[in-house]
Amino acid sequence: MSSRVLVVGERRAGAIADTSLEVLDTAHRLAGDGGVAGFVAGADGEPAAASFARFGVPLVYWARELSAEDSAAGRIAPTVAAVADSIGAEVVLAGGTTFGRDLVGYLAIRWNAAVATGVTDVQRDANGLHARRPIFGGRATETRRLEGWHVALALRPHAFPRPPEAPVPGRVETVAPVEPSAGWREAKCLGVEATPTGSGPSLGDATIVVSGGRGLQAPENFHLVEELAASLGAAVGASRAVTDAGWRPGSFQVGQTGKAVSPQLYIAVGISGAIQHIVGMVSSRVIVAINSDASAPIFKVADYGIVGDLFQIVPALTAEIRKVRGT
């Protein structure tokens, strides 16, 4: 069984987002002989379109004239639906970012698609497609059957591997945009203030996250967490105790009222593991906790635990990682 699959790419810092590349394995598997095509929007979208092509998408449609400096999916959804129709796609896949999740919401109406977000697995059988996704903050998973002619899925970030580069790159073709609904003409994005993440990747994109909590005791100690993160090329996160106290801005907060992250590796330093923090990180693949209190609830969800004083453990760990990685 095969079907044509359209993958929608998102630009990030002049290139393509990792979360967009992560959908390619699933796209090729679902497409079979049906073929995969790509889509990228924006005047500065060419490098992103070219990276899709480099990673094995045979033909990438680039909607150059579509304004896409911001990440508003509503401006782009009509063109995505039109391209999907023009190539006879049955499935649209996007990374499950803020953009990708909104995009499939629009496609549910505009393209009459059966949709799901935060998807960690897609299977096809005689009854069609089935998507598995964590719900209730990772405390359960559900499987849903996707019924209808069209399917649009936002795949959970970092739940799928990034493919290797293809031996033969694909090509990029420009495509004419479709005007979004009238209301978008007067809506304006006035600018984007980059999240202060230090030099590392942003929380939502990172494959490794190191978060610090109240156990660091004072803002001037938070550099211990940042150095550990830097040694791993990780993003820095924080508990609400830290953001509420103003040690770090709210954009660092992981949890129910902050960001939900699902990296390959999550390291919690001096974080007790309140349920509101847990729901934001429990679906990480591997969790490490460093805490002086052996009965801290964070150890219940962790895979590896070190009971000890973070002021001794964290510098030793940073040094060891630097040694092993040769940095």
Partner: peptide
């Protein structure tokens, strides 16, 4: 968003 804080009107 993943890139930062967008301001809209």
């Amino acid at each position: 968003t993943e890139s930062g804080l967008e301001s809209w009107e």
